[in-house]
Design a protein around this nucleic acid. Structure first.
Lengths: 140, 140
DNA sequence: TTCAATTCTGTAATTATTACAATTTTATTT
DNA sequence: AAATAAAATTGTAATAATTACAGAATTGAA
């Protein structure tokens, strides 16, 4: 399935901009912020407006085609992988890694027992990634 | 232990403003944003500056006396309860609830096996709280 | 009391995000 | 194919959160 059909499957009308943005999300697993996407696509689509990037990602999130991450305190990040998974952000380099998520069934059933309807599960860690740990020890 | 000593235990020099802000965090479990704290304390300390609220909370977080939550997309929220626990934010009323957190030991050991040093665990859910569910059904 | 260091304050600057009107593009009808 | 209507995009301006910073106030030590 190409990006055009992929968008349609989420009830999103494809356009040049939407296809480019979704394609970027699906091929780059960097959990980009608005600016990263804008700057990356600006070369191919010189007329692209940052407002369009904002609007498009909002649309994607509303239709369930992308997820917004609030791991990074500075910027909202976006993830084209909508499957349930956890994240790790390195405090040193800022990179966000994907991790398998093990949903806690006990926690979930406790919540619904108390009358909470759970719609989203967010699970992330912060610390230092292996790369940055190596770089640090190199300098000693 | 009073708030004065509590701040000292985190190596934070107490001041009128710091004591008031920490006291607010410890007695109100609303996970307040900057504005809530500022407005609540403004009556008692009319000279209080919003910059001080920002600076003080930053200081608290750095010293481990408070945690910053990025659950709410609009504002950073702050939590004086530094013990490991999860959160639930209602998409309807915005309220943030505390939940017991069950740390996933498997996930943790997987990460350290791969060379990740985990320093923070964030775990939260979004959905509709029991109160809002009741209010909705009342209107039918 | 004097001096130095720290903390607080208020304003200005910065940055992310949203609002909105005008333009462009796309789809539909004639 | 031309005319029309609807939707999407763009760019600018407005808003809101946060940070920078310099001066004022406070605290602690000599």
């Amino acid at each position: 399935m190409n990006v055009y059909e992929y968008l349609l499957s989420y009830d999103i009308k494809p356009s040049v901009q939407r296809i480019a943005i979704m394609d970027y999300l699906l091929t780059h697993h960097t959990h980009p912020c608005i600016d990263e996407i804008y700057m990356a696509l600006h070369d191919d689509i010189p007329t692209l407006s940052k407002t369009t990037v904002y609007n498009t990602l909002k649309l994607f999130v509303e239709h369930g085609a992308a997820k917004m991450l609030t791991i990074d305190e500075r910027n909202a990040c976006f993830d084209g992988d909508t499957s349930a998974h956890a994240h790790f952000q390195c405090k040193c380099c800022g990179k966000i890694y994907d991790l398998p998520m093990h949903v806690n069934e006990k926690e979930m059933s406790d919540m619904s027992d108390k009358g909470f309807s759970v719609e989203e599960v967010h699970n992330y860690y912060k610390g230092v990634c292996p790369e940055c740990k190596n770089n640090k020890s190199d300098k000693n």
